Simulated assay, not measured.
Amino acid sequence: MRAFIPTLTILWVITTPCTEAMHGLYNFGQHDLFYKKNNCKQIPTNLMLCHDIEYTEMRLPNLLGHETMNEVLQQASSWIPLVQKQCHPDTRKFLCSLFAPVCLDDLDEPIQPCRSLCESVRRGCAPLMYSFGFPWPEMFECDRFPQDNDLCIPPASAENVVPVTKEVPRVCDACKETEENDNEIVDNLCKNDFALKIKVKDIFYVNDDTKIVPEAKSKTIYMMNGVTELDLKRTVLWLRDGLRCICEEMNDINAAYLVMGQKINGRLVITSLKRWQKGQREFKRISRSIRKIQC
């Protein structure tokens, strides 16, 4: 399961839950899903993608074929980084029209996004997704959606465009830029339980946290008592509150990163994350500092 890392922000990266959601894709124009009784459900507060939009009740099954709220919550969280990236002001409206379609008791047919809404969001966001190696997913192909009419959701008019988010997301504490001299680098290492040079294999979202699985060839740079070889054999790293903050530093899933952190309640929690750039002065200093480290 790959995602945009919030460059997010990474993006915080969009992952392929985008592709996994396709298994239940509603075949627009046919109504097999809606032979089942459609229930109006209150949009839960933990559906962060859509919980404070203009309406409060959504349909299940939704337009992507998700039949339970757990399915919706799992799949929708992977798209929050794209909304945070603000590639188009209607990104959230478009995604919520599919993941949490508006539910009206007196209307049997689902209200779909208009084709023009899809095309507008695709023009704004597809290039960004391609830059991270992710094509515009088949489940969002715009010709699946109806031409503009009174019963589909249109794009916002130019006069009514509103910001995608109410406020600029805060930068994750672990991703804040810092200028450190050799002594400060050593001091930072000594405050942490491990330092690793990693490349990212997979990213998941668990509740509000980001779960990062490094590639198997990640290199241990520094390890204190409390962190064991077993911890690092199948390394899983956690960025706390990763769905509520951005990490511009981590904007390329193919890059190498230096991560430092602490073992907290059995988890390896990231406290510092930097892009590893071979030959860069800062990382030459880090390498020198690690060789002479004495905590």
Rank of each mutant, 00 (worst) to 15 (best):
M1N: 14
R2M: 15
I5M: 11
I5Q: 12
L8P: 15
L8C: 14
L8G: 15
T9D: 15
I10F: 12
L11D: 14
V13R: 12
I14V: 15
I14N: 15
I14E: 14
I14S: 14
C18D: 11
M22A: 12
H23C: 14
F28P: 08
Q30C: 08
Q30Y: 11
Q30L: 10
L33Q: 04
F34L: 14
K36L: 11
N46Q: 13
L49K: 09
C50I: 01
I53Q: 04
Y55W: 09
Y55I: 07
T56R: 12
T56Q: 09
T56H: 10
M58Q: 05
M58Y: 05
M58P: 01
M58E: 04
L63D: 04
L63R: 06
G65I: 08
H66N: 03
T68Y: 08
N70P: 09
Q74R: 14
L82A: 06
H88W: 01
H88Y: 00
D90N: 12
D90P: 01
K93L: 07
F94R: 04
S97N: 03
P101S: 04
C103M: 04
D108N: 09
P110V: 05
Q112H: 12
C114N: 14
R115V: 03
R115A: 07
S116K: 13
S116T: 15
S116R: 14
L117V: 01
C118T: 01
R123V: 12
C125P: 02
A126W: 07
P135H: 12
W136D: 08
E141W: 08
C142Q: 02
N149M: 00
D150H: 06
D150V: 09
L151V: 02
P154C: 01
A156E: 14
A156M: 15
E159V: 07
N160L: 10
N160Y: 13
V161T: 03
V164P: 06
K166M: 13
K166Q: 13
V168K: 12
V168E: 12
P169K: 08
R170C: 02
V171M: 13
D173C: 02
K176N: 06
K176L: 09
E179N: 15
N181R: 10
N181Y: 08
N181F: 07
D182R: 10
I185L: 14
L189E: 09
C190P: 06
F194V: 02
K197R: 15
K199I: 05
V200S: 04
D202P: 06
D202T: 14
I203D: 03
F204T: 07
F204S: 05
V206E: 09
T210F: 05
T210I: 10
T210C: 03
P214F: 07
E215P: 02
E215M: 13
S218T: 11
S218P: 08
M223V: 12
M224W: 04
G226F: 06
T228D: 00
K233Y: 07
K233L: 10
K233S: 04
K233E: 11
T235E: 00
W238N: 01
W238S: 01
R240S: 09
R240D: 10
R240H: 08
M250D: 09
N254Y: 11
Y257W: 02
Y257S: 05
Y257I: 02
Y257K: 02
G261L: 00
K263N: 00
I264Q: 03
G266T: 01
G266L: 00
G266Q: 08
V269Q: 05
L273Y: 06
W276G: 00
Q277F: 11
K278H: 10
E282M: 08
I290Y: 13
R291P: 02
R291K: 10
Q294D: 12
